[in-house]
Design a protein around this nucleic acid. Structure first.
Lengths: 143, 143
DNA sequence: TTCTTATAGATGCGATTGCATTCATGTGTC
DNA sequence: GACACATGAATGCAATCGCATCTATAAGAA
């Protein structure tokens, strides 16, 4: 197909396949260890890194590249689980602040070792250092 | 974290983020053009390439790296849409053959240009030829 | 002010997913 | 054959997703 060389198709197919498989494997491993979903972890990490431990849903949405309704519901669940707290936003009456709770921070920290180990086993251990670095950098250009 | 170097985490994060964004973008583009989901396309492609245009659900499942129930339901929809035909499997009484229909083949062929163009625009056009090739090959080692 | 348009966020509803289980057939052992 | 166990496939149910829409506030124009 002249609009799309074979190498591009190969990269695409591999990208999709690899990501889905890795994500499913890591997720399954975490679930088996009694951990909540990766999305929760990501959200908690974003919140914990934000100044004051809080973000507006819009910003969380952009940071996580999620659709708006998805963020809205994720936040719902975090709040319901006591991992985050909803606050009114003094700057913008339409908005709010989501602040990570102490429990949220603790969970995030407790989760990291599991997460890291899963990533290392499924990704890190299967390529050389140089390959990992190159992969990360190539993908970085696409973010 | 000593079990997981920073470069590995970077590769992981980029991999997940890039794939999700690209997939969502391409999928949205196809949907806007009235095309069915990518999963349908992939399944039709697998079937069309298989000898006799047919595969056992188990094999389709392995080829697409999907969970079993997912394949089962995908096949359901394809059959319901007239794009594939369920056949009894003479070799194994538990199994079946799924054969792509004429309409299925036509749809697959009709879809490809849209698909290719979207891949080219979102992935191919954003890296050099060499980079694409390297990306594809690095990811290939992880399949 | 009033009207229009843009943005933040929530939500109803139908489609899809994940999990666990079920059913049916195949395989191996005795 | 009779049994236990493995494998192919479907499905009930709850959770989640995607889409479209809705509410409320903000920002700007007339």
């Amino acid at each position: 197909m002249k609009t799309c060389p074979e190498t591009t198709v190969r990269a695409w197919v591999n990208l999709v396949r690899v990501e889905q498989k890795l994500l499913a494997d890591v997720e399954a491993e975490l679930k088996a260890a009694g951990c909540p979903s990766l999305a929760w972890y990501d959200a908690l990490l974003e919140l914990s890194r934000a100044p004051g431990g809080r973000m507006r849903p819009v910003d969380l949405e952009r940071a996580m590249l999620l659709p708006q309704y998805s963020t809205s519901r994720l936040v719902d669940r975090l709040v319901k689980a006591g991992l985050a707290i909803r606050q009114v936003c003094p700057i913008d009456g339409r908005g709010q602040f989501i602040e990570i709770s102490g429990e949220g921070r603790r969970l995030q920290k407790r989760l990291w070792p599991f997460y890291a180990e899963a990533i290392q086993r499924h990704l890190g251990a299967r390529l050389s250092r140089e390959e990992i670095a190159r992969l990360g950098s190539l993908l970085g250009k696409l973010v």
